[in-house]
Design a protein around this nucleic acid. Sequence first.
DNA 1: GTACATTAAATGTATATACATATATTTGTA
DNA 2: TACAAATATATGTATATACATTTAATGTAC
Lengths: 149, 149
Amino acid sequence: MKIEDEIKQSKFESEFHKLTINVLFSGKWINDVMNQFHKQFDISSQQYNVLRILRGQYPKAATVNLISERMIDRMSNVSRLIDKLETKGLVERSSCKNDRRQVDIKITNDGLQLLKQIDVQQAQIMEKFNHLTTEEAIQLNNLLDKFRG
Amino acid sequence: MKIEDEIKQSKFESEFHKLTINVLFSGKWINDVMNQFHKQFDISSQQYNVLRILRGQYPKAATVNLISERMIDRMSNVSRLIDKLETKGLVERSSCKNDRRQVDIKITNDGLQLLKQIDVQQAQIMEKFNHLTTEEAIQLNNLLDKFRG
DNA sequence: GTACATTAAATGTATATACATATATTTGTA
DNA sequence: TACAAATATATGTATATACATTTAATGTAC
C-alpha cells in the first residue's frame, strides 16, 4: 500500500519529504508487527532484542554497555530491561571480576530455549511479510544506509 | 553508515532479516532526529504531526477520527494530544453541530504561526539530511511501499 | 597517596504510550 | 417508539520511555 494511502495524504512537499514520512511510518509499522508477534511469548520487542544480543555473545557474558551499543533502540533503559528479563529467569547477572563497576549479563538456558521457540515461528511469519526479492532487499538496505548518511 | 556498523552486528540470517532491522533502526533514527529538532519549539513530533494535519484542513475543522487516520503513529492518543495543544493555545475545540458526538478541532493563528516558524528551519535542516538524489528517493519510497506489502 | 575527573550501572521522576473501559450520542430495526 | 448496536471521544491505568541524577569504582594528575 502506497504511503499516500496509508496516511490519506495526496500531496507532499517533495519526494524527500515523502521519504522522511515513509521511513517513519515503515519503522512504526514493522515495530507494531514485531511487538504484536512477541506478545504471545510475554516479552517486548526490546526484551527480545536484548536476548538476541546475549545469544550472540553466548557463552561469553555481556555488559550493559555492550548491549546498549548493539540495540536497535539506543534510548532504551537497559538496566530495567535486564531487571524484567532477570525476573523471568531468562538472563542472569553477576558482578564482573576485572572491573567491579561492570555487570556480567548472561542468557540462561530458559532464555536460549525461549529464543529457539520464537525462531521457528518467526521464520514462518516473516516469510509472509517478505514481498521483496533478494535483489530488492539488498537495494533497499543500501538505500536506507545512504538515507541516514 | 551501514546498518552492520550502526548496531555492531556483522552477520544477519538473511538479507531480509537485515532489512527488517534496517527499517526499524532507520525509523527510530529519523524519529529521534525529528524529536530533537521539535524540542526547541516545545512540541513533540506527534504534536507537530497533528498541527500539520490541521493546517492541511484549514480553514475547515477536523475531527479526532480524521486526525487519527492521517497520523504517522496510529497508536497515539489523539484526545490527549489535543489537550496538550489546546493548553498551549495552538488548537481549539468546539462541539460539532451536526453530530454532537464529534468535536471540531481547528488550528489557531498561533498554531499557524508556529508552523510557519518551524517550516523555515526544518527545510534547512532537512537539506543537510538529504543524502539521496531524487531518483533514489523515488526508488526508496517505492521499495518501502512494496516492503509493507 | 590524595583529589578530581571519568566511567558503568542503577534509580528517580515526569511524560508518553498501549490498551481497556466508560460516557454520550446516533443509527438501525423490531 | 423503544431498545440494542454502533460510533466518537474521553478517561483510567499499567507499563515504557526520556532524561537527569545518584552511587560506586576506576583512572589520572599532582
